[in-house]
Every structure is written in C-alpha cells, then in structure tokens.
C-alpha cells in the first residue's frame, strides 16, 4: 500500500563523506497520530550495465512507544551519519546512487513509504565529462 500523503525531504541534496545527513518527513496529523513506527534506511545501489550491487549503510527503526515520531504538526526529523565510501558516481557503465527511504507503519497494518536520492561526495561526472 502506498499513498501520496507522506512527504519527505532532505535538508540538502549534496552531502560530504562522513557528514550527518538530516531531513524531515510529514504526514497529515490525523494519520501521524496512528503511526506505530518509522524506519529510515540509507543505502546505495549500482546502476548501469553490470548486475545490481547494493548495500545498506544504516537502518533505524523508531517505535511510537519509545520515541516521539511526529510533532503536533505531523512532522518528524531524522539524522544519519554518512560513511566515507563509496561516493556517488556517474560513470559510463558503472553508476553508484545513494538513497534514503522512509517507511511509516500505522495502526491497522498499513504503511506509507517514500524515497529520495542524494549525492555523497563531490566526484566528477564521467558522463558529463565525455559529452
């Protein structure tokens, strides 16, 4: 089940290696009140010609019973420490794409999820260079 009500944004799209990535997510207050848990997963995956490679840097799960998931306006924040590698890369046949996924579970077994890509590091784009 996926609904458009979950909005999610990062404080910026370009991050340095080792920096702390921060962002916020928002749900309508009446739905936010029923949230059971919020999971934030930061991972990378390869794109391009080769078969898929992927790895999860971190997966944080916060439960409503232990943590305040949303404030009164239906907004929640998160922060994740980023690793030193691999850096985002836009090559000709190999690409590395970092993304954050937010998944909110609500009462009744439903969930909302949304993901955003971001850039880790400042590596030159080979596909831009070759143009």
């Amino acid at each position: 089940m996926s609904h458009p009500q979950l909005t999610f944004e990062l404080d910026q799209n370009d991050w340095g290696a080792g920096e702390t990535l921060t962002g916020r997510y928002r749900l309508p207050t009446e739905i936010a009140a029923t949230a059971r848990s919020v999971e934030i997963a930061v991972s990378w995956n390869s794109e391009g010609k080769g078969d898929d490679d992927r790895a999860i840097q971190s997966r944080q799960t916060r439960a409503a019973l232990e943590d305040e998931l949303f404030d009164a306006s239906g907004c929640g924040t998160f922060s994740v420490e980023l690793p030193a590698a691999p850096l985002s890369y836009d090559g000709l046949i190999v690409k590395i794409v970092w993304s954050v996924q937010v998944r909110v579970e609500v009462a009744g077994g439903g969930w909302f999820d949304e993901s955003n890509i971001f850039r880790l590091g400042r590596v030159e784009s080979i596909s831009e260079l070759s143009k």
Binding site: A85, P86, L87, Y89, R122, E124
Partner: peptide, 16 residues
C-alpha cells in the same frame, strides 16, 4: 591525484 576523481571501487558485479 585530482580531488574530484572516483576512488577505487570493488563490488560483486561493478568495479572501478
């Protein structure tokens, strides 16, 4: 070594 080049990378199916 220029600062903006990609570092060495080795995963199961993709390498730099």
């Amino acid at each position: 070594v220029p600062a903006a080049v990609m570092h060495s990378f080795e995963a199961a199916h993709n390498k730099i």
